[in-house]
Write a protein that binds this DNA or RNA. Structure first.
Lengths: 244, 244
DNA sequence: GTAAAAATTGACTTCTCGTCAATAATTGAC
DNA sequence: GTCAATTATTGACGAGAAGTCAATTTTTAC
């Protein structure tokens, strides 16, 4: 159906090459070091050619961010799979977030760049839409688990909150913790020594607060998380490798 | 003690003027519209004079951010004052956050700019330190309430979490919710219609999870929050006015 | 082999940042 | 009040990146 010439394939590959070249510059030296001139020089193309692929450098960053979010999405999918109780699989998603932040540090860092208003505001609505869809996809995986639990009776819909609003709480606490951890280098000075453990505990209390079965004590929860981690982390690593 | 000439006073006032001129540009047109040339032209000074006050525009933004955080700090102080149980005063701090986000939108927006790595990384360590201290000051107000509750026996130190780690949870969920609300325009599309109410409920569940007396049902909590709001919001408004 | 279409090139314009030598204003000693 | 020293102000300038586009080269289709 879709014809594709050698030339067109070459061009598509070059788009990937640009991202491959831009990524380490962005990660190591920041946005200001990432210039179209530099990318062009490194790839031995004229600047105009790079502009044929991306209308500005911000779009390069968002393209990298989309790659990163796709990895996150894959991790979420893996975590949500299997036939354990939904609450347990939800815990796995928490672990996927931890894995992503800690072991996919480059991707996590690039996701932060994406939230930079300089970058976001300069990029095209199209790319913004694609990224939002990917975000919504992650959200929906989690919301799916909530709905499943509701239909299986492991969770009574609290009269106060919709499934999505429950997800919002978990999302906010996980996301908030990660941003604070990443952006407040003085967290230790403030007396917070193990933010990951704290976040696990807070999630546990939120889930218990929802009345989500099986209710777990903090100790049970922490043990179970460790157990799940030892099982999932190798699988996550596999996904991470495949993602390249 | 400190001698100050007319000229020096003039210069100090001009620093304030620069901020006053820069603020609406930043808020309405973003960072790229805020140029030293433009500020200089608007104030009818040469560019070099502006550079005598701020070594770059990023420092202007951080100076504005510091003003914003001082307002936040004042709101926190007000919320934490009084002689009600610490848990109730903690709820007031949650309301202070809501007030800040919703009614001090300019300040809130500027705080977001501050977290922009372009800006943060270009500013001087000195200014960064001052800002961190202000942030730590807010944190300490909250941590103080936790410690007070511990000493009054309203709160048993959970074996799992230090006071600061409890604050971290509340901080993360509040902060995370606000960032998500501010940066995901599609929150409605995802099924989250009243993020503020959701956040209140999640905080309530976290506090109950800590076993913090008085334990409140969600309904009781929501009612009480409304009650406190009607009392505090006028006071917050007063502080906001004085802040100018 | 050739003409049309597509892709590539890099010089050029524009913009902003940040500097600094020259100039102006202020201060304080006399 | 004068004058030299100090301090502040000015704006032309250099550097460097963004983004454009007419000219040139390569590819494609016949």
């Amino acid at each position: 159906m879709v014809e594709i010439t050698r030339k067109q394939r070459e061009i598509q590959l070059r788009t990937q090459e640009i991202l491959r070249v831009a990524k380490p510059i962005l990660l190591a030296e920041g946005l200001q070091a990432l210039t179209m001139d530099r990318v062009a020089a490194l790839m031995q193309y004229a600047k105009g050619t790079i502009y044929n692929h991306f209308p500005n450098k911000e779009e390069i960053v968002l393209a990298l961010a989309l790659e990163a979010m796709k990895l996150r999405h894959k991790l979420f999918e893996k975590a949500a799979s299997g036939d354990r109780p939904a609450r347990i699989r939800l815990m796995s998603i928490g672990l996927a977030c931890e894995f992503y932040t800690q072991r996919c540090t480059e991707e996590f860092q690039i996701e932060q760049w994406m939230r930079n208003s300089n970058i976001w505001d300069k990029s095209s609505p199209d790319r913004q839409t694609v990224i939002r869809q990917c975000e919504a996809g992650c959200m929906q995986i989690v919301a799916g688990l909530v709905r499943e639990s509701l239909s299986h009776g492991e969770l009574q819909s609290p009269k106060h909150l919709s499934p999505e609003e429950m997800v919002f709480g978990l999302w906010a606490i996980t996301f908030g913790s990660q941003i604070l951890t990443a952006s407040s280098p003085s967290l230790q000075a403030l007396g917070i020594f193990d933010p990951i453990r704290s976040t696990r505990i807070h999630c546990c209390q939120l889930l218990n607060g929802f009345g989500w079965q099986p209710i777990l004590s903090v100790d049970e929860y922490l043990n179970l998380v460790e157990q799940i981690a030892s099982e999932f982390f190798p699988q996550f690593e596999q996904i991470q490798r495949e993602h390249r």
